[in-house]
Structure formats: structure tokens, C-alpha cells
Amino acid sequence: DDWEIHFNNITIRLHGVSEEQIEELKELIKNGAHEEELRKWAEEVNR
């Protein structure tokens, strides 16, 4: 699925990401992940 997530003036566009991966991302954000951590997560997902 395609997703677009907005938070802290950042837009993250995701393509072909599962519901499970979105839940992981929500947890990262909820736990106060920094932009660098989110980038690493996105790189892993996009492999």
C-alpha cells in the first residue's frame, strides 16, 4: 500500500509498505524517534 504520514512538519511517503510496518513506524514516532532513526527505518523498509 501507499502511505503518506505527516508529523513535525515532515512528510514521509511510503510505497508498498505493510500495515505491520506502519505500526512499527507509529511506535518509533510515539517513542520520540529522531529524524535519523526514521530515515534508517525507511531505508530498511525500502530494501
Score class of each variant (00 low, 15 high):
Lys30Phe: 06
Ile22Cys: 07
Trp3Gln: 05
Ala42Leu: 15
Lys30Ser: 09
Leu25Met: 05
Trp41Arg: 08
Ile10Tyr: 00
Glu35Gly: 07
Gly32Val: 01
Arg47Glu: 15
Leu38His: 00
Asn46Phe: 11
Lys26Tyr: 15
Ala42Asp: 09
His6Asn: 08
Leu38Arg: 00
Glu36Thr: 06
Ala42Met: 12
Leu14Glu: 01
Trp3Glu: 02
Leu28Ala: 01
His34Lys: 14
Arg47Cys: 12
Leu38Pro: 00
Gly32Asp: 03
Val45Thr: 05
Ala42His: 04
Asn31Met: 10
Asn46Val: 12
Ser18Val: 04
Glu20His: 12
Gly16His: 15
Thr11Pro: 00
Trp3Ile: 14
Glu36Val: 06
Ile22His: 02
Ile10Thr: 08
Ile22Asn: 01
Gln21Cys: 08
Glu44Val: 06
Asn31Arg: 12
Ile10Gly: 06
Glu37Ser: 08
Trp41Lys: 13
His34Trp: 08
His6Leu: 10
Glu23Leu: 14
His6Cys: 10
Glu37Gln: 11
Leu25Val: 05
Asn46Ser: 13
Glu19Asp: 12
Glu43Gly: 01
Phe7Pro: 01
Lys30Gln: 09
Lys40His: 10
Trp41Gln: 04
Ile12Tyr: 00
Glu20Arg: 11
Gln21His: 11
Arg13His: 15
Val45Ile: 12
His15Trp: 06
Gly32Glu: 03
Glu27Ala: 13
Glu37Trp: 05
Glu27Val: 10
Glu37Gly: 03
Ile12Met: 02
Asp1Asn: 13
Glu37Asn: 04
Ile5Asn: 02
Glu23Asp: 14
Ile22Tyr: 08
Ile12Lys: 06
Asn9Phe: 07
Leu25Phe: 13
Val17Lys: 03
Asn31Thr: 07
Asp1Thr: 15
Glu43Gln: 02
Lys40Asn: 10
Glu4Ser: 05
Val17Gln: 02
Glu44Phe: 01
Val45Met: 12
Phe7Gln: 01
Leu38Tyr: 02
Leu28Lys: 06
Glu36Phe: 02
Glu24Phe: 10
Asn31Lys: 11
Glu4Gln: 05
Glu24Arg: 09
Glu43Cys: 06
Ser18Lys: 06
Val17Pro: 15
Phe7Tyr: 09
Glu4Cys: 08
Glu35Trp: 13
Arg39Lys: 13
Ile22Lys: 10
Glu36Ala: 11
Glu43Met: 01
Lys40Phe: 05
Glu20Phe: 08
Arg13Val: 06
Ser18Asn: 10
Leu25Ile: 09
Asp1Cys: 15
Glu4Trp: 07
His6Lys: 11
Gln21Val: 13
Phe7Arg: 01
Leu25Thr: 00
Leu14Val: 13
Asn9Trp: 07
Glu4Gly: 02
Asp2Gly: 13
Thr11Lys: 09
Glu35His: 06
Trp41Val: 08
Asp2Thr: 13
Asp1Leu: 15
Asn46Gly: 07
Ala33Gly: 04
Arg47Asn: 14
Gly16Tyr: 14
Ile10Ala: 06
Glu44Met: 08
Glu4Arg: 04
Gly32Trp: 02
Ile29Glu: 01
Lys26Gly: 05
Ala33Trp: 04
Lys40Glu: 09
Glu37Val: 13
Ile22Thr: 04
Leu14Ser: 03
Arg39Trp: 11
Glu35Thr: 06
Arg13Lys: 10
Asp1Phe: 15
Asn9Arg: 05
Glu37Thr: 08
Gly32Asn: 05
Thr11Leu: 13
Leu38Ser: 00
Arg13Asp: 10
His15Ile: 12
Glu37Tyr: 07
Phe7Cys: 09
Glu44His: 13
Asn9Thr: 09
Trp3Pro: 04
Arg47Gly: 15
Glu27Gln: 12
Glu35Lys: 04
Leu28His: 01
His34Ile: 10
Leu14Trp: 00
Gly32Gln: 03
Asp2Leu: 09
Asn46Gln: 15
Glu35Val: 09
Glu27Cys: 10
Glu44Ile: 08
Glu37Pro: 00
Lys40Met: 04
Trp41Ile: 10
Leu38Asp: 00
Ala33Thr: 06
Glu44Thr: 07
Ile29Trp: 03
His34Ala: 13
Thr11Val: 11
His34Asn: 15
